[in-house]
């Protein structure tokens, strides 16, 4: 188990480095930060001074090396805009984002899984059809449309909740709803199909044939087997705890990481963008690692395979 975790960790670090390398080149190739920060009409001396100050005139490989060095030492430099350390800027925004994404994740799990399991156990019932319909709607509706719809109904028409800002829990209601509805749909659908698949397996018939009650068949035999695909989806959701709220934060002017990302990309604030990408990549990779470990705990066959690898 220990060597398994070590190998995974090493792989995770490598993945993060690859992502960051990719980000480096894409960001350098997509526009001149100096021109964007200072505006197209800026005097050439000012542009030159800016470029010199940020090392933009160095050869690309040197920039890359110091960039890598920065990543390894967790020093992304300072924001080109307000000159505070980039990583600090990002880290101080994380609680605001998590204040939306964690309640949303809890809602997704607490509603999506039971709804999907219920639908699977009552196939072709009205409840089942309802779950399918709602889940299709939930995950085909883009979150900006859904967010605007919720604002229109609950903020503008009914006036129950504010449409933006971050002053009380009431401000979080609409963004959390916007964030969770799609995920509830996805989890409901996945749990439903996972349960249906498992309930058709021969070992379920065996359990029934030996006299296990239907209740225990569902809880002790079916659910543990269905949990592997469900955990995969939850893993994705955990991986997007930091990055998953970009659109929603913009709609509801919520001062989280997502909004910082949009502002920083627009301003070509390289240090901050890179720090955000690093944090995002790290959470995703970490979530993946957790999923791998959970697989091993849930399914002895996967445990055997992963410890051998």
């Amino acid at each position: 188990m220990i060597s398994f975790v070590l190998i995974r960790l090493l792989r995770a670090v490598l993945t993060v480095l690859l992502v960051m390398t990719f980000a480096f080149f894409v960001l350098r190739l997509s526009g001149d930060p100096a021109l964007i920060m200072l505006g197209p009409d800026a005097p050439t001396e000012a542009v030159a001074a800016f470029r010199a100050a940020w090392g933009l005139d160095d050869p690309l490989w040197r920039q890359y090396l110091s960039y890598l060095h920065g990543i390894v030492t967790l020093d992304f430099g300072v924001s080109m805009r307000d000159r505070s350390p980039a990583l600090d800027l990002v880290l101080e925004r994380i609680p605001a984002t998590l204040a939306l994404t964690i309640p949303a994740l809890i809602l997704k799990v607490a509603i999506g899984i039971p709804a999907g399991v219920y639908a699977a156990l009552h196939r072709q019932s009205i409840a089942d059809r309802g779950v399918i319909l709602l889940s299709v709607m939930g995950f085909t509706l883009p979150s900006f449309v859904l967010g605007l719809l919720l604002v229109l109904v609950f903020a503008v028409q009914l006036g129950w909740f504010p449409s933006g800002g971050q002053d009380s829990w009431r401000h979080a209601v609409l963004p959390v709803l916007t964030l969770s509805i799609g995920g509830i749909g996805i989890l409901a659908r996945f749990s439903r199909s996972a349960m249906i698949e498992v309930l058709g397996q021969p070992y379920i018939r065996t359990a029934l044939a030996k006299g296990v009650s239907w209740r225990d068949v569902v809880w002790k035999h079916a659910l543990p087997n269905a949990s592997v695909p469900i955990v995969t989806i939850i893993g994705f959701m955990i991986g997007s705890l930091v990055a998953g709220a970009v659109v929603v934060e913009s709609i509801f002017s919520w001062p989280g990481v997502g909004r910082l990302l949009i502002v920083s990309v627009a301003n070509r604030d390289l240090a901050v963008v890179q720090a955000i990408l690093m944090v995002i990549a790290a959470t995703m990779v970490l979530a993946n690692l957790c999923v791998d470990i959970a697989y091993g705990l849930l399914d002895p066959r996967l445990r055997a395979r992963t410890t051998a690898a």
Partner: peptide, 23 residues
Amino acid sequence: ETIRGGRIAMIFQDPSSALNPVR
């Protein structure tokens, strides 16, 4: 549920998939 397994038990054709893989 009282008959199954107690009075009448059943075994199946494909034994490998007839046992719960995670227990």
